[in-house]
Design a protein around this nucleic acid. Structure first.
Lengths: 229, 229
DNA sequence: TACGCGCATAATTTCGAAAATCAAACAAAA
DNA sequence: TTTTGTTTGATTTTCGAAATTATGCGCGTA
């Protein structure tokens, strides 16, 4: 087999993002090797690679774990998403052409279709795989014309950790009915090419995952004295 | 030995950041094992981990390389540093207390001392190790009070790739005489707690590593029509 | 000479087991 | 009863070799 390593990596990533392993559960190479019919060393190597993109926790001499759920972590991931997505989206507005608008519209149409079906059935579970993929694609397309591969790769890493934290019954697997309106607002801001509006709509979309408001800006008066508002 | 893996990881990271391997040179596990008196598999594992933080290039079936030098990559790393450091520094202004100011002053004092000595001798090479460490510490302290471990870890990863790209004779190992003035300006902005000034000074400090200006903002008039300035 | 084909060599990937380390259960002493 | 020390079993880490895959070279042919 050619790329055994890469295949196992992709499959494990998918299993981790979809919450197949419970939060904090141990990932034993000896157990997982059976799923892939390979040696424990190969699994170990994959787990190492996953740990450096944050989807697996590694502690020396203590092995690998699926990360614990943590509201603090969720908060930090959300903050980072806001930072990266507003930057990426605003750069895409500046640099992207009609082709970008068109791809974003297409991604939104697919997502919107799925979310409408979820709303009428009232249950996201049967469509979870589809919805999850469509959501990721919409947000990735949003920043796709930003001109920086590094920004896009960094965002992807953060997005997947974010998703992993949300995939549980308590949070309805990260699905909220307000998504439909919010995704529409983001698309509108993009097509209007309105950066200020984009920042607001992306913030509104993600803010519910913060456990406290982000600190507000210090203002400095003419004398150089500063004060929080 | 307890943490052989981690020790080799740290040492290899240091060697990579200080440019011991030429840009694009192959990193053969068989060769490196001799440096550490261990097996090739252990080296391979370390190289894998380094590749996921961007300090080593990995291609399937083609092994590991020290990354090539690329102005495009340098541009993207600089852009990301500006984004992360302005956010981290402004959050530190909002959240950090006197204790943070004090640590930043200390870090600046050490850095300033070294840079003054470099200026008078006109040669950074004998102090390269010291200067490099002090520069990193100053920039890390700048964002240290931002309240987000994720932001700090992400910045560290980007900073080290940035440094790796700059460590060559052509760029004078990333050292510029203007640094002295620019680092002072950043410290002043922090002590004034002036966020707008902080954004300007951080930008000025890093902008020379961009190969083109960052795209400027689109402005939207009252009618919703937009235009670049 | 230029081009493609197969072979030999070198490099990478995978493996299973040995060595090192940790955790838990049990026993002995305070 | 609580604390401390020891042994045993399980887990993690390291290893060197086998299997797989890529690379470079010589040879024949156009």
């Amino acid at each position: 087999m050619a790329a055994q390593d890469a295949d196992i990596f992709d499959d494990m990533r998918h299993r981790l993002i979809t919450g197949e392993f419970g939060y904090g559960s141990k990932l034993r190479a000896e157990k997982l090797r059976q799923d892939y019919n390979c040696s424990a060393s190969t699994v170990r190597e994959v787990l190492f690679r996953l740990s450096t993109v944050g989807l697996v926790d590694f502690q020396e001499q203590r092995g690998f774990r699926s990360p614990f759920q943590s509201v603090e972590r969720q908060h930090e991931l959300t903050h980072m998403r806001i930072l990266l997505e507003t930057e990426g989206a605003c750069l895409s507005i500046r640099l992207g052409g009609v082709e970008w608008e068109s791809r974003l519209s297409a991604a939104h149409h697919k997502l919107s279709h799925i979310e409408t079906r979820v709303r009428s059935s009232g249950d996201v579970i049967p469509l979870l795989g589809l919805w999850s993929r469509a959501e990721q694609e919409f947000h990735e397309t949003l920043i796709d014309a930003c001109g920086s591969g590094l920004l896009k790769r960094t965002h992807k890493v953060i997005y997947e950790q974010f998703r992993q934290q949300l995939v549980s019954a308590e949070t309805n697997y990260g699905y909220f009915p307000e998504n439909i309106r919010e995704h529409q607002a983001i698309l509108d801001a993009a097509l209007e090419r309105n950066e200020d509006l984009m920042r607001v709509t992306v913030n509104d979309h993600l803010a519910r995952n913060l456990i406290r408001p982000l600190p507000q800006k210090h203002h400095t008066d003419a004398l150089g004295k500063s004060s929080a508002i």
